[in-house]
Design a protein around this nucleic acid. Structure first.
Lengths: 364, 364
DNA sequence: CTGAAAGCGCTTACAG
DNA sequence: CTGAAAGCGCTTACAG
């Protein structure tokens, strides 16, 4: 020991009558008359401690309002008590709901949520995954915009389990919670065919995104199976691109009788375009849309949708992650959920007008 | 030194040819032939280091792909490189947008986002604030459902700055970024009066929430100033309660000609109730709604709204927080933004029908 | 400018 | 069951 040193800003008191805001385990130990190891053991509950000691420690913890320093625990345990959630767009109601449920479930199990929004940029995704590798969350749930970025494998390499949500990832060690987008698109086509139309177009989510690619594939397969001509446009990711894509589809295929729309943001664009082009729904064009946002019932006519069980999917993802974290490890799992077709007025060519009129006036 | 001990799971190699996944600062120091203090100094850039040493360290960092251990940094610095964001409902588009912008701004400045969703429960808010005190984020942005919970003051006591968003907090040491809800409600009333109606009701956000209380107060003041009778109902927080409150208001005041609605979730309920009661908008009831969600233009007729500058408000909140964190501290600030009235068809009693007909067909 | 050392506040293997 | 001590991987005041 060479020089005397000042204790660095040790426990600066709040000044007020209140107790010291930064109580340490050593102080608890002193008060309880035990070692800090014993305090730690009582708090963790993972080793047995004599009842008397246990009581004394509990009392001291109580009296001092002691709270363990998470930062120290994190360093020791080499991991932060957080779950990383990587999504592409928090403003998409699909992900808002997912984030809501994930946060709730994680919190209930003792973990916090670190939220990362990639905006569908591979660049940002890489940067976030790199950051997550540094922050050492206990696990990561990701709806990847780039399924094969090496940072995903790196997370798994360093022991951070990954669950893919909505969209698969390349690395086969990751769990995956998906929805059957292919089948859902097929269902939409079958429903429309069933209501008497055959010239069914598809205005889809960017096929750059796995979800978009699967939906398009399902649409094409269903049309082919029926011997119908498939015609589609790529609607990108946002309202504005959906609007323009819809215009294009209408221009290229004026005889179109129905359309399947690739997600809820695009639907906002599609509906505006249809209105601008003076196409009535469902009389001129029947519509079935992916996702089931809260306004689906409100628009006029109400919207037939393909709803994903987002709550169940998210809870499953969190559960898979935490099973993995807490050692109930198993083979990588891949769980696929089904969509539900919610038939409302936008897809019923016949009688829709009447039904509407029953429920409301012409305008509302 | 008493007993020999095993190095605890020291740097378990990945097995693959890849380099050791957990490189430490000591290894960088060794490789560069300097002390770890020097490595730290080079990396932090906060002290001057001889150019040659600097170069050697940089090279070693590069060669070993060294990344500092955040968990260790956090313990040393006594704070995690995160911003806590506490909101009431991520599924409300108002907060989705806020979270989106907050995350983006924070990330750009080098901080991550810890997201906490209280669901308007004071209980949950307390629990989250307690948790945040443990996690030691560099700062917290909160839209409080309980302005006076002592945990807010506790955060400030322990040196974590707090910025109130949307709704003020009791503790005067916190900054606040607010919108002028009182004035906005007044604007809505004036707009409706200007379009020729006088029997204007208010279906409002729960007055338990500061925002709701201010909006109601603004409505009442505006009505009083005009010598008009104010009649209102508390619409709670959600679509379903908004629906029922609207029904109640229509029953109690059948002569009502217009209504101001307290937020976007309630609006979904109000519009459904109006439709169920067969009241046409705007012919029977003109509507002005708080918030400007993406579907506002889509519903038929399009919705006149009071839009908050959410993006600017959020960026301001993040900036205030980070100024505080990075030492550009000043007196607590209180910044109030104004709403923008977006006049669309739902509030124009005269000519609305025609205008609509011009832009679209009867149904769409 | 540089290094040796203390210390952040915990957890846990070791010895008793 | 319990305590002393090492160690998690950094940052920084101190001495040179």
């Amino acid at each position: 020991m060479t020089g005397k040193r000042l204790p660095e800003a040790s426990g600066e008191r709040a000044g007020e009558g209140s107790s010291n805001p930064v109580v340490t385990m050593a102080e608890v130990a002193e008060r309880a008359g035990v070692s800090i190891a014993t305090v730690s053991r009582v708090l963790s509950g993972r080793s047995s401690v004599a009842p008397e000691y246990r009581a004394r420690v509990s009392a001291a913890v109580e009296e001092l309002s002691y709270r363990p320093n998470r930062l120290a625990q994190n360093l020791r345990r080499r991991s932060a008590d957080m779950v990383g959630v990587v999504i592409s767009d928090i403003q998409n109601p699909h992900f808002s709901e997912m984030v809501h449920v994930a946060e709730e479930d994680a919190y209930r199990r003792g973990y916090r949520m670190l939220l990362c929004n990639t905006g569908e940029s591979s660049e940002k995704q890489r940067s976030y995954l790199q950051m997550l590798a540094d922050e050492r969350p206990v696990g990561v749930i990701i709806a990847p915009c780039d399924a094969s970025s090496p940072e995903i494998s790196h997370l798994i390499d360093i022991g951070i389990p990954v669950v893919a949500f909505d969209r698969p990832v390349k690395d086969e060690r990751a769990d995956a919670v998906l929805a059957d987008n292919f089948e859902a698109a097929r269902t939409a086509v079958e429903h429309l065919v069933g209501s008497g139309v055959t010239r069914i177009g598809y205005m889809g989510l960017s096929t750059q995104i796995e979800t978009g690619a699967r939906r398009l594939a399902g649409y094409k397969a269903a049309m082919a199976a029926r011997g119908l001509e498939a015609r589609w446009v790529d609607g990108g990711l946002r309202l504005a691109t959906g609007y323009r894509a819809t215009e294009r589809l209408l221009r290229e295929w004026p005889e179109m009788e129905a359309m399947v729309v690739g997600n809820n943001m695009l639907t906002l664009g599609a509906l505006r375009a249809l209105r601008a082009e003076k196409r009535r729904v469902p009389e001129d064009i029947a519509v079935v849309a992916f996702d089931d946002p809260s306004w689906a019932e409100l628009v006029q006519p109400s919207l037939t949708t393909l709803a994903q069980p987002v709550r169940a999917m998210t809870s499953t993802a969190v559960r898979l992650l935490i099973d993995n974290i807490e050692g109930r490890r198993r083979e990588p799992q891949r769980i696929v959920f089904r969509f539900t077709l919610k038939v409302r007025d936008s897809s019923s060519r016949s009688g829709a007008g009447d039904r509407q009129m029953d429920e409301s006036l012409a305008t509302w």
